[in-house]
């Protein structure tokens, strides 16, 4: 019994020592609330590089507390009180939630590169050598092709995917007939959705499912696909002619940095993310850079799809969410019509 008490005391001591270590005022601390996809590049490149820069510039050490969650979940966590200094999320709507909660009070879109730090496009990942001979969107409705993407209910990445499917057909009809046809886009989305057997909760989980051998095509971010290939996974990558340009925002969370007194460091870090050095790191991890100079350097790695469109083509995020994902939205209703 006495030894047990001893162990407990020891454990408590260890805990308090650990806590006081973090609260050490000689060190600056930043809390980063990010989505899961760029986790590797933050941990292996960006944070170590910034720590070195900060030390050179100020002579102080800077310590990062990092949290990586699905973009929507991270955004909600911050809105409900997780005191992140910096929010790096997958889509504008998740940053806007923080503005609605009055946590971000500045105009984040007025920043460099309109507040975005990385870009990507929705691509198709197929089995090595492309055995099902998939070349574009139309192949996804074939009866012998199984498609995988996560659920837009839980994954920001899946929203980008569904936007790409829907928008690509709008583009197609616009090209063929001169005007975009929402009814055709809806039918096409329903046809692709009917080829989906598994909807995981996140993009990462979908990749895992794809790796267990399920499905012929995985729809995902280009950077996710490139990262998997870097890790030695043997997939073929197809960039469709018409696809959506993904832009990922970052913003300083005003209320939290003012409370922590960490505004200077937080703004320096966000500034660093826009720098050519950081942009090169992003690019080498498969993200399309926003910096013009670095974009030029990596032009060969990231082909420009001829019919690239962005979220504004669909009317912006708010309208897209209402149109596709609300309880009466186009995507939501696909399932109800099919069951009849």
């Amino acid at each position: 019994m006495r030894t047990l008490c001893g162990w407990l005391c020891l454990a408590m001591l260890g805990l308090t020592a650990g806590c006081s270590g973090q609260a050490n005022s000689a060190r600056d601390t930043l809390i980063l609330g990010a989505y899961t996809v760029p986790k590797e590049v933050y941990q292996r490149e960006l944070i170590p590089r910034f720590q070195k820069l900060w030390k050179q510039k100020t002579g102080r050490d800077i310590y990062f507390q990092q949290s990586y969650l699905a973009s929507g979940a991270q955004s909600r966590a911050i809105a409900q009180g997780f005191d992140a200094d910096i929010a790096a999320l997958s889509l504008e709507a998740d940053i806007e939630r923080l503005r609605d909660a009055r946590l971000i009070t500045h105009d984040w879109r007025a920043a460099e590169h309109r507040g975005f730090i990385t870009r990507s496009v929705v691509v198709m990942l197929v089995r090595p050598g492309n055995p099902k001979n998939i070349s574009g969107w139309d192949d996804l409705t074939r009866a012998d092709v199984d498609v995988i993407y996560p659920s837009p209910k839980t994954s920001g990445g899946a929203m980008w995917v569904v936007n790409a499917i829907y928008g690509s057909r709008l583009k197609q009809t616009e090209k063929d007939t001169g005007s975009a046809d929402p009814a055709a886009a809806r039918r096409f989305l329903a046809a692709v959705q009917s080829r989906v057997r598994v909807m995981n909760k996140s993009g990462r989980a979908s990749v895992t499912t794809f790796e267990t051998g399920v499905g012929d095509v995985l729809l995902t971010y280009e950077n996710e696909a490139l990262l998997r290939r870097q890790q030695g996974k043997d997939f073929s990558l197809i960039v469709p002619d018409a696809t959506i340009l993904i832009e990922n925002p970052v913003a300083v969370v005003d209320k939290n940095v003012d409370r922590h007194g960490s505004r200077e460091a937080a703004e320096a870090f966000v500034g660093f993310l826009h720098s050519a050095e950081a942009q090169r790191c992003f690019a080498s991890y498969g993200f399309r850079p926003v910096n013009a100079e670095v974009t030029g350097e990596f032009a060969a790695v990231f082909p420009q799809p001829p019919q690239l469109f962005d979220i504004d083509y669909l009317g912006g995020w708010q309208q897209t969410i209402d149109l596709l994902y609300s309880s009466r939205g186009v995507w939501t209703r696909i399932f109800e019509q099919k069951s009849n």
Binding site: S151, K153, T154, R197, V198, K201, A205, F335, K338
Partner: peptide, 29 residues
């Protein structure tokens, strides 16, 4: 959530539906 396909109206069970509603910002559902 790992074993089922989670396709609405086909292989989506109540708990997964509930999780989806929470994650997509509809706690009422």
């Amino acid at each position: 959530i790992i074993v089922a396909g989670n396709i609405p109206m086909r292989t989506q069970v109540a708990s997964v539906y509930i999780y989806g509603e929470i994650e997509s910002g509809n706690p009422g559902g």
